[in-house]
Nucleic acid binder design. Structure first.
Length: 433
RNA sequence: GGCAGGUUGCCCGAGUGGCCAAAGGGAGCUGACUGUAAAUCAGCCGCGCAAGCUACGGGAGUUCGAAUCUCUCACCUGCCA
């Protein structure tokens, strides 16, 4: 994340750029990798295991790094782990609960379509999607043990950081998860044989699994292959990146609405925004430096956050969704009178923030806060009102029994309910019967 | 298998019969300041408008009264085998 990342003497413009962005955590022999990249288009791969129905913004780091490498003139192989997703890589949090084959198959399809969005499938460096179930499923246990297993030494396998840690934990480690590194090594070998793949990129926690592949290729084929890892992105305060109070920030718009997604990036703290732009933005280096300067000189303008939020939201959800989300944010947080916003924009904005239909008798503020989920209970709602944190249509309400009058309803039916500065929701009181 | 200790609110952790809806810290929420940031300061932080209700691993007791005592079940930790 800092500018201090050392750049080895023998390097390559692409690697240099990745270093500047803080995107290289570890790599195998870098001068050799630089030479390979200079020699011509290289086939490289990055894998994604279907452990949920959607990827999240942590995965975006790898995905966008792959895109950068592709833009530099190399051929990406986007691997979806139909096989490895059935096994699960060892984690410190303990043995995984296996997901059913049908579930994994469905997730594979969903994740594949997400991966496809970030790579270019046309032109001389066209990307390709591969699924490791294709070569793993047909393999017999005998072939696996004779052809692949012989190349793996127990000492080496046991010394892998996560394996050793799990082995010495109370939880232990199943043979299933222990074997994961072999499967991933096999993938690299297979892609090397099929497509001449010589580079694997992955998250830094995957380092051991990536080197399983480079070692296997060396033993089985006598060839050199490379591994490159991206760092774990952290927040300025050291806490986990990509989580909000409501959980993981997903790429799937149904799991994390485009509005929430945009807001996540908009709210990035000043200390982190410069680093995030380097990782997630495709703007030129000069533009990024100008934005860093803007944050330093005019922090209140939040130019860097605006740029980051707009760009990443566009990348993930498209221009139309981003425009609507930006209009939404403007309407709900802007200084302007809510009455100046047109009906369609307001409704879209509230839908993004969370629009709740209510019928029946006119609700009180307490009921509005509860119905929108802004308060978890009536007690919580009353407390919020007493603290001066309840707003209807951007006006503070101090009376818990206050009922919005018909004139308060925007366009005869909508209310903007806000708790504190940031938590906003909409209520539609004009639901057709 | 035996012995000892432990299980408290989102998390950590105090509390050994009434003054306990439960100290303290963290997290979280709200306000002030500001920039939908950070820091700081202040208030809040089980449910309920309220009366009150539900809570201290589960269950059963003792007592006018239990987080606190007894029995029992479950789980965790340490020592011994």
């Amino acid at each position: 994340m800092s500018d201090e990342n050392p750049v080895p003497p023998t390097t390559h413009p692409l690697l240099e750029d990745l270093h500047w962005r803080g995107l290289i955590a570890q790599s195998t022999d870098e001068p050799e990798l630089a030479a390979a990249l200079s020699a011509g288009p290289v086939s490289f791969y990055g894998g994604f295991d279907p452990t949920a129905r959607s990827l999240h913004i942590g995965n975006l780091v790898l995905l966008l790094t792959m895109r950068r490498i592709q833009e530099a003139g190399h051929r990406p192989l986007g691997l979806v782990g139909g096989a490895t997703g059935l096994i699960g890589d060892p984690r410190m949090s303990g043995e995984r609960v296996l997901n059913g084959p049908e579930v994994v198959a469905q997730w594979v399809a969903q994740i594949q379509s997400q991966v496809e969005k970030y790579l270019d499938f046309t032109g001389p460096f066209a990307a390709r999607i591969v699924n490791n179930l294709d070569w793993t499923a047909p393999m017999s246990a005998i072939d696996f043990l004779r052809d692949v297993g012989k190349h793996f030494r127990m000492g080496r396998m046991l010394s892998k950081e996560i394996v050793s840690a799990r082995l010495h934990s109370d939880e232990g480690l199943s043979f299933t998860e222990f074997s994961y590194q072999i499967l991933q090594g096999m993938d690299f070998l297979e892609l090397h044989r099929r497509y001449g793949c010589v580079l694997q990129v992955g998250g830094n926690d995957q380092w051991g699994n990536l080197t399983s592949g480079t070692e296997l290729i060396r033993k089985a084929e006598g060839k050199v292959a490379h591994a490159l890892t991206t760092p774990l992105i952290t927040k300025a305060d050291g806490t986990k990146f990509g989580k909000t109070e409501s959980g993981t920030v997903w790429l799937d718009g149904e799991l994390t609405s485009p509005y929430a997604f945009y807001q996540f990036w908009f709210n990035v703290e000043d200390a982190s925004v410069d680093g995030y732009l380097k990782v997630f933005s495709f703007r030129t280096r000069a533009e990024l430096e100008a934005l860093a300067e803007a944050t330093a000189v005019r922090p209140h303008a939040r130019e860097a956050q605006r740029a980051l939020a707009a760009e990443v939201t566009t990348l993930v959800h498209g221009e139309a969704a981003t425009a609507s989300v930006m209009a939404a944010s403007g309407a709900l947080f802007g200084r302007g009178d809510l009455g100046d916003v047109d009906e369609a924009t307001l409704e879209a904005a509230l839908s993004e923030a969370g629009l709740h239909e209510m019928t029946g008798p006119p609700p009180t503020v307490v009921e509005l806060l509860r119905a929108t989920g802004l308060a978890s209970s009536s007690s919580d709602a009353r407390r919020t009102i007493a603290e001066g944190g309840a707003n209807i249509n951007n006006r503070r309400i101090n009376d818990p029994e206050h009922m919005p009058s018909p004139e308060d309803l925007l366009f005869g039916r909508l209310l903007v309910v806000r708790r504190g500065k940031r938590a906003v929701a909409g209520v539609n009181l004009g639901a057709r019967p």
